[in-house]
Nucleic acid binder design. Structure first.
Lengths: 199, 199, 199, 199
DNA sequence: AATGAATGAGCCTTCATTCAT
DNA sequence: AATGAATGAAGGCTCATTCAT
């Protein structure tokens, strides 16, 4: 029954299963048995493909980061004005593929994991720096050099906070509300800058 | 060795140890053995006092929520104007006792735990509703009925996001930066409401 | 609160509690904590009185054996004919104080315990020999020297079997049925011995 | 070391080991470690095959019941007259494979277990009803409708009692004596029924 | 390629038992 | 007299991981 060239598909199944399992449990404390079972194979095969549990986790984490990256890059490509570039990043954050409870729970799990795992931290660092510089670049023409870093970090933190609340609070914001909140925050930054009336 | 009347102190030691351990690991996947060891006793004694691991966790969670509550209540008592009340909540959030890496990691762990544990969710719900209504009440005179909910939720999400970034990102904001970001966000809300009366 | 001279009553409480607990669980795998709790005291006190768990068990066993012995002795004293002596033993076996599910379960537990515990075996041996010789003595005039041992052993085994079935089988015999079965068995032995004198 | 297709043999080893261990201890309070060790494998493997300790116990119990059933069925098949059928049941009860100390101790342990475990009770019920109806059917032609139930229950109880005594009393009956006692009891029933037609 | 067999390590929990008070 | 404090040992069970097949 072993189909030839099944490896990539198998690996992908495992990663998807790992993501779902981690998201549901809200923790890395999930067994390889459960992940493999969900992916329709034996635990032994999961080890065969990934070597050990840590590798499964790291690959799953990388997959999640890449997916978000792709989502953002994709939208950024189609943006032409600075404002559209900022919107692209905001919209990518709250796109359906990312902004669902289980996925966000997985995000947080990986955040936490990065606190105590060097490889996870490294992985995280790369992507989050890229995201930040994207945001800074997009905002600079809109809020000016002096404010750009503060604006980017505030907007970034707000996005993170909305994520957390969506996943974890009953009655948290849905995607539309989250986007609106970001837009409003952005607007306030813009109006403070351009009319000649900052502080 | 058995000192009499030691129960409260022992329970407190265990809770502190649990908080530290969970914060360091960034997960509930910590053994009672480690917690008890850190608290200077045998695992069996931990079970004697708490019954099971879940109880240790729930009590630790409650302790953290209560500490934050106390911090906030304390500052709110000393506030007289609406603005001071909002500041009180912001300051409580970034007070030294709460705003350190391990404590925040513990917060996130409990957030995640609340996704899959009924008792944890209940506990969380009570406290987070109280905090939100405090914030809404404090903001209402400042931003008006129409904006108050959005303002509270944005500010709340921003606080959460700053938390996450402080704990988890190298190069995240320190307490002073976080406070400043919140104040700036608040200012922008105020100036949008009554243009003549900011600061 | 320590009443003076409470020791005998305390010990008795513990024995009763142990008997009930063992009978309910159908095993010696019961904790001293449960026994002591049922007797209204702390486990530590139980150890204070009995030394260790084995002692609790042995004393409980002895208590049960003594109670049965007393029941039998009592009835034997009031019997004047051989037949009445046999009936006394049968009746003692099925007296209310002995013939209830939990007590019988305890009997069996002790039987089994006697297989692997020397002291329990010794204890058991003494009492069961006495009972057997009582039965043999009572039967001798009724069935004659040649048959007496077989009759006693058959009757004894039958009693044991009825015990087991009462305790353990749903739809097992009640006390009256058990007594009747023994009487019938006895009758058949008698009529076999002196053909002219049955019933 | 991992041989393929080892499951049935392993399960059987475990069941045999469990039976021996339980029989020796005279209780279910035996560790899986001991059982597995005796069966030549690690405890983890025992859990792999059976899931949990209860399952090991239930399967062991079922094995014992089946073995007895097979023994009886086998002999019943070869019996042609009613009397031979009764003898078949008696003989099955005291066959070497069943009538040894440890096995009987295990029987009693399971009896007791059936008092507090639903699945054990169910299992027991099925087999003991079948045995009883076999006995009743075999006896009916010999002792008549009126007496058949009493005769079956008396004979059944006697068998149980002889079991207990063989296992637990030093100086209890051996197989031959036990068989003889049952035969004698049966004879007395027969002669009471149709005085001219015994044997 | 894929899996069942196999295990050592570790975890939660219970328990008998001791000790100070 | 009576109990809470305290623990070492043990038990059931899960898990990551390896190895033949």
């Amino acid at each position: 029954m072993p189909r030839i060239g099944a490896e990539p598909a198998r690996r992908r199944s495992l990663i998807d299963a790992a993501l779902a399992t981690i998201g549901e449990h809200g923790s890395l404390d999930v067994s390889v048995k459960e992940i493999a079972g969900r992916a329709g194979m034996s635990p032994a095969l999961a080890f065969h493909y990934f070597g050990d549990k840590d590798a499964i986790i790291i690959h799953t984490m990388r997959h999640l980061l890449r997916e978000f990256s792709a989502e953002a890059t994709d939208r950024l490509k189609r943006a032409s004005t600075p404002r559209e570039r900022v919107d692209a990043i905001i919209d990518a954050s709250f796109a359906a593929s990312q902004f669902d409870r289980k996925t966000i729970a997985a995000w947080l799990v990986f955040y936490l994991h990065a606190c105590s795992s060097r490889p996870a931290a490294r992985l995280f660092h790369v992507y989050s720096r890229r995201l930040r510089s994207n945001l800074v670049d997009a905002l600079r023409p809109l809020v000016g050099d002096r404010e750009v870093v503060a604006a980017a970090d505030t907007l970034g933190a707000l996005i993170d906070g909305l994520y957390v609340r969506h996943a974890l609070r009953s009655g948290g914001p849905d995607a539309a509300e989250a986007r609106r909140a970001c837009q409003a925050c952005l607007e306030r930054h813009l109006s403070a800058y351009s009319p000649g009336a900052s502080q």
